[in-house]
Design a protein around this nucleic acid. Sequence first.
DNA 1: TGCCCAATTGCAAACGTTTGCGTAACCTTT
DNA 2: AAAGGTTACGCAAACGTTTGCAATTGGGCA
Lengths: 343, 343
Amino acid sequence: MQTKPTTIKEIAQILGISVSTVSRALHDHPSIGLTTRAKVKKLAGELNYEPNQTAIFLQKGKTLTIGVILPELSEAFFSSAISAIEDTAYKKNYTVLLAQSHDDEQKEKQLVEKMKNHRVDGLLVSVGKNTSSYQHFENLKKYNIPVVYFDRIPSIPNIHYVACNMEIGTIEAVSYLLKKGHRAIGMINGPQTMVATGERKEGYIKAMTKNRLKYDPSLIVSCDLTEEGTKKALDELLASKRKPTAIVTFNDYVALFAIKHASRLNIRVNQDLEFVSYANLPLINYMENIPAASVEQFPYLQGQKATDILMDLLHHQGTGGNEPSAFYKVIIESQLVENKKQD
Amino acid sequence: MQTKPTTIKEIAQILGISVSTVSRALHDHPSIGLTTRAKVKKLAGELNYEPNQTAIFLQKGKTLTIGVILPELSEAFFSSAISAIEDTAYKKNYTVLLAQSHDDEQKEKQLVEKMKNHRVDGLLVSVGKNTSSYQHFENLKKYNIPVVYFDRIPSIPNIHYVACNMEIGTIEAVSYLLKKGHRAIGMINGPQTMVATGERKEGYIKAMTKNRLKYDPSLIVSCDLTEEGTKKALDELLASKRKPTAIVTFNDYVALFAIKHASRLNIRVNQDLEFVSYANLPLINYMENIPAASVEQFPYLQGQKATDILMDLLHHQGTGGNEPSAFYKVIIESQLVENKKQD
DNA sequence: TGCCCAATTGCAAACGTTTGCGTAACCTTT
DNA sequence: AAAGGTTACGCAAACGTTTGCAATTGGGCA
């Protein structure tokens, strides 16, 4: 028995009234009599009527759907963010259309097209790390599809975004190490191309100068974030004139690679060499040797904020319709969190 | 300048031909002359025409969208699975509508409704751990919306599913420990209610009897998967008459909790007490003290298979339409993987 | 020259809903 | 009792497509 879903039309026919009346009755339109209203609802209930959203979408030009494009669903940071996005969207009765770019610009472009065809009301994006042009996103403006970027944001003007500023967190991280008595503090930073790399460096320098210490450029090395690159970076640091007693790493992956390498070199982690990192991973809770502290980047919060902004945009665009003159630029300050190791 | 997306209608008007001709031209319908076909396509290109999917959905009754309902997006196992689902669906030109139940049966029901209203073509489900009735899913059959369950599958007949059988993996795990000389092997199992708990126990027993060893029930304790519960379970095992020298845990979380607890009790992990677990987590790569081996459950593969099945169902339902007489029941055999600790 | 067939194209319905406007019926008012 | 005002409902268009069928054209052939 394959039942076709009940339609408003059938209800109208059974009751011998018009479809418009049924539609209005179901929406509690005041111009419909109480008795008919009740009759309609009763029957609708009995027939298990569910409005066909696709029809409503077509009619209204809105889909109550937001698209999310991000590099990699299985990465902890993003899966946490997407969890937040879904939660937040759900509360506002929106649904989430999901796609991952795998850091492939070409695929990212296709996905934007797809999202446009699906007529998503808005888009949440964390751009791929190789993406060089943002035209495919910018085009959406013409179609009045708002885009909110999060975490990995493009460096172009006039966009809405929420991101995490690493500078403050880094200042805190370095200060934390200084307070613990460290003077030679190394940093394994990311590739020069990334915005976040610059922020970390700035933070490092500011923390040093704020404490009237001089900044030794040889203590900051960049790496490509791979295990191999991390090893080399650590070796380089350990070989420098002022051998560091503490290291700030670009992210948890790098930290763990470095820790692994260090303990193989018979360096006692967090004793001979203390680590501070940026929390991308939820696994810290389960580990033995972990960075002494991490700079939290709040993926859940970022996802939540980004979704809130998009919702706001969606609900206030009906009127004006022109380019918004103001853009949301939410910066979440990163924050140092001490990793208490045992319970 | 907010451009409305180009419609087929506009193209028709500009070219002075009918919409049907335009539609057919764009689809390379043979009955349309080559010249008109070319003209239409040219203009469509210039105007950046993109078909309005919502209209097509309405017309065709198909949305090229599949819904995915699972407990928790941010859990590593599921984020890996969803990644696979998206990848696989994308290849077949399907889009993924995503929602998480947070293990809340009530919300799960609402989500099913929502998915139905969105007219997803099919559904991929991993049920919440508290879900007791599966009626909300079963109802979808009436609407001809196929459902494929994965990983956390309900124990009811006549469903499509792909899941991982823990028995083989467990046999392998226990055998692995036996081969290493262990004789007193403990097991921290899950709650009695879960299918997987039974499978693990079966595997344990089979491995023991296969090796002509007697099965000591006191060496299998169940726990609620929390950190507290795990501690208690481990304490219980350590207090038993035959103190185990190795332990198989229900999953990686449990394993890590247990390892944490053990090392606090000054037990040398994998020396005094060896651990084998089930891989839910990708973090193993980064850790110091890890289970000596894990039973891999292939989340990516599960997601992939489940999606493939759904695709197949979707493409073959056009004809019959009645209840399928055959159901996909794909069992992925779990597999023991030795965790090589240092490269 | 008349007829038939193939090649093109157009008409219009359909998918399920919302909504502006028109129109009955009824009730109140003078 | 006629005018005016409510109240309750129906008509039909619209959203952008697809598609069965009809209609038009032209050419080939007898």
